[in-house]
C-alpha cells in the first residue's frame, strides 16, 4: 500500500463520515441525492462480493464492510427515517438513475478482463461508480443553498478519486505487471466529472463565499 492509496481511502472514509454526521446528528439529508446513494449501494454490493472468495488483508476486509454498511444505512436512513426523510429534496432529485444501470451492465458484459461472474460484476461496479455521482451533481446545481457538509462530502468524494489516480501512476512504475485499463479509464472519467464542481468549490473557498453552482 502506498501513501496515495491510503490517503485516497481515508478521504473516501472521511466523505462517508461527513455524510453520516449530517444525517445522523443533524437528522437532515437536504441536498443529498438518494439516487446517487442507491447507486453507490449497488456499486459496493457488486464489487465486494469477493469478501466471500478472497482475502487480501484485515484492512481490506474491514474497509469493505465499512463502505457496504455505510452505503446501505445511508439509503435506509433517507428512505425510512421519518425526520431524515422529510428533509429529502424529492422534487429536485429527479435524475433517472436506473437508466445508468443497464448500459453499465451491458458494457461490463462486453468489455472486461475475464469473463467470470465475479469479474463481470466487479467491472460493472467500476463503470457504475464512474457515473454514480451524476444525480448528486445535478441536485447540487438545482439547490440554491448548498450547506457546508454537503459541499465537503462531494469535495472529499472527488478527492478520493483523484488520489486513486496518483496511486495507479505510482503502482504502474513500481509494480511490473500493474496495467489495468478498465479501472484507469473509468476512474479517470469519474474524476473528470468532478472538474466543474472542483472549480466552483475552490472559487467559493478562495473568495470565502457560499458555494453555489451556476444553473
Amino acid at each position: 500500500m502506498n501513501i496515495f492509496r491510503l490517503a485516497g481511502d481515508m478521504t473516501h472514509l472521511a466523505s462517508v463520515l461527513v455524510l453520516l454526521l449530517k444525517i445522523h446528528t443533524i437528522k437532515s439529508c437536504a441536498g443529498v441525492s438518494l439516487k446517487t446513494q442507491e447507486l453507490y449501494a449497488i456499486v459496493f454490493a457488486t464489487r465486494y462480493l469477493d469478501i466471500f472468495t478472497s482475502f487480501y488483508s484485515i484492512y481490506n476486509t474491514l474497509m469493505k464492510l465499512v463502505f457496504l454498511g455505510s452505503s446501505f444505512s445511508i439509503v435506509l436512513y433517507m428512505k425510512y427515517h421519518k425526520t431524515v426523510h422529510r428533509s429529502y429534496d424529492r422534487e429536485q432529485d429527479t435524475f433517472r438513475h436506473w437508466f445508468l444501470v443497464l448500459p453499465c451492465l451491458l458494457l461490463a458484459l462486453l468489455i472486461h478482463e475475464k469473463f467470470t461472474f465475479l469479474e463481470v460484476l466487479w467491472t460493472f461496479s467500476l463503470y457504475l461508480e464512474a457515473v454514480a455521482i451524476l444525480p448528486q451533481l445535478v441536485l447540487l446545481q438545482r439547490t440554491r443553498n448548498i450547506d457546508n457538509l454537503t459541499g465537503q462530502y462531494v469535495f472529499l468524494l472527488g478527492g478520493y478519486r483523484g488520489l486513486y489516480i496518483l496511486n495507479w501512476i505510482y503502482r504502474y512504475f513500481t509494480e511490473p505487471h500493474f496495467v489495468h485499463w478498465i479501472t484507469w479509464i473509468s476512474g479517470l472519467v469519474q474524476t473528470l466529472l468532478y472538474a466543474d464542481f472542483f472549480f466552483y468549490y475552490s472559487q467559493s473557498w478562495k473568495n470565502n463565499k457560499k458555494l453555489q453552482l451556476p444553473a
Binding site: 496511486n167 509494480e175 505487471h177 500493474f178 496495467v179 479501472t183
Partner: peptide, 10 residues
C-alpha cells in the same frame, strides 16, 4: 505469468 489484479484496491 499472470497480471497482478487490482482487486486488492477498494
Amino acid at each position: 505469468e499472470e497480471t497482478e489484479n487490482a482487486h486488492d484496491e477498494l
